[in-house]
């Protein structure tokens, strides 16, 4: 089933006069892990923010369950946000430095009122346990946590709205390799257990290859190649894809 359909999405940053996303069209199907690979500045993070309307697109459409997200009211959009979540790259920048971990999660419940006042605390603890943390983290500040732990909090926050679709924007790139494996395990498990759909963004073809079903390759704001895992890894068509593969040190 087609979950999201993106048509001809454009975004230009006036200040830098560059076309960050230059006509992106693709579909995301329910339950799949769609990989998006490209180097820094290729527009992949901009695309992620466009899809969730965290920044405004110049033109195009994003259909989610028959509704064009670029053409619905702010109020409707706020309600739809429940279903579409995002995990960011830098766990040091993605948490409010002044907010305790418990509050990070409780705020989501506060906004969406999807959990009764009485159950909030137990639900928060349950969610922290789901991501491998626990009750002891409730009153800690982000600065007291390691990178991996912060990323787990970021994942818990994304799960708090019980979403259908999560954009993972380089979720493991700034982590040490052993922590990276832990976080990837957590993401893989969650995806299977909750039948989540991921758009998994990374510059690392090794990571992309090990968890994605379909892969899109992006360069300078454009998709230059897309296909199944086998297509991209076994039979790449574009020279750039081949260069990326050669550079990836796949063991």
């Amino acid at each position: 089933m087609e979950l999201l359909k993106i048509n001809n999405l454009y975004k230009t940053f006036k200040k830098h006069r560059v076309c960050a996303v230059d006509g992106a069209s693709f579909s995301i199907f329910k339950g799949e892990v769609l990989g998006l690979v490209g180097e820094s500045g290729c527009g992949k993070s901009t695309l992620a923010k466009l899809i969730l309307r965290l920044i405004d697109a110049d033109k195009g459409s994003i259909f989610y369950k028959g509704k064009d997200l670029l053409n619905i009211s702010r109020n409707d959009m706020r309600k739809t946000r429940k279903d579409l979540q995002i995990i960011f790259q830098d766990p040091y920048a993605s948490l409010d430095p002044r907010m305790k971990i418990g509050k990070v999660i409780e705020e989501v419940y506060d906004i969406h009122k999807n959990v009764s006042e009485r159950d909030r605390k137990s639900k928060t603890i349950e969610l922290l346990e789901t991501v491998g943390l626990g009750e002891t983290y409730l009153n800690r500040l982000p600065s007291e946590l390691s990178g991996g732990e912060r990323q787990r909090v970021g994942i818990a926050r994304a799960l708090a709205t019980d979403p259908e679709f999560i954009i993972c924007d380089e979720p493991v790139s700034s982590l040490d390799i052993s922590v990276q494996a832990q976080i990837l395990n957590l993401l893989i498990e969650l995806q299977k257990r909750k039948n989540l759909t991921y758009l998994f963004i990374s510059h690392d073809l090794g990571v992309i290859g090990s968890i994605c079903d379909r892969i899109m390759v992006m360069q300078s704001g454009r998709f230059i190649e897309s296909g199944s895992y086998e297509d991209i890894f076994k039979n790449p068509q574009c020279q750039y894809t081949r260069t990326l593969l050669e550079s990836a040190f796949l063991p």
Binding site: K79, R81, A93, E107, H112, R157, T161
Partner: peptide, 14 residues
């Protein structure tokens, strides 16, 4: 422009 503000918007904060 920091990610935690984008994250707030993503969870639907006003």
């Amino acid at each position: 422009e920091r990610d935690f503000i984008y994250a707030e918007r993503a969870i639907g904060a006003s």
